[in-house]
Design a protein around this nucleic acid. Structure first.
Length: 145
DNA sequence: AACGTACACTTAT
DNA sequence: ATAAGTGTACGTT
């Protein structure tokens, strides 16, 4: 199944089956169809960590799998650096960056919460989205206090 | 099966 | 500001 929901002036396309997410991509254009409830909630600014969903990425047999599982642990509204993640799975920061670039399921694997030590780091298709996501999470987290 | 290259980083000049 | 290290996956022989 596939569909999309709105996030600002972007749409998030989701490819999924049951509780398993195969792919999510950001696009300027909508894709008709339903998405799991978690995505709706998240895009509406609710605190949602996609706990009930699984990403195919965490099953990768390579070190990327470990990286994705580690990244999943960073909580809503928080961030970690490439270097910190690299340390945990004993590889180099560069590899973590590469894994993030190829992350098939953003949001479920919250790659937007992984930032550089000196700057925010990259995001495809646009770092603008990454910044918006981080800001949104920060705001909803603060609102809770 | 081996080789070269591209990187969403980091640290040291 | 720039270069030198870095580890992995992936395309190309």
């Amino acid at each position: 199944m596939s569909g999309s929901c709105r996030f600002g002036l972007w749409f998030v396309h989701v490819w999924w089956s049951g509780d398993t997410i195969f792919q999510v991509v950001f696009s300027r254009f909508p894709l008709t169809g339903m998405v799991p409830r978690s995505f709706i909630r998240y895009c509406a600014g609710k605190e949602e960590s996609f706990q009930s969903l699984e990403s195919v990425a965490t099953a990768y047999p390579t070190i990327y799998g470990q990286i994705y599982r580690e990244v999943r642990k960073v909580a809503y509204g928080e961030t970690a650096t490439y270097g910190e993640i690299a340390m945990k799975v004993s590889t180099s920061p560069r590899v973590v960056g590469q894994a993030m670039r190829r992350n098939p399921t953003p949001l479920v694997i919250p790659c937007h919460r992984i930032v550089g030590k000196h700057d925010v780091g990259g995001f495809t298709p646009s770092t603008e989205i990454k910044e918006a996501l981080i800001l949104m999470e920060k705001k909803t987290k603060d609102r809770r206090k």
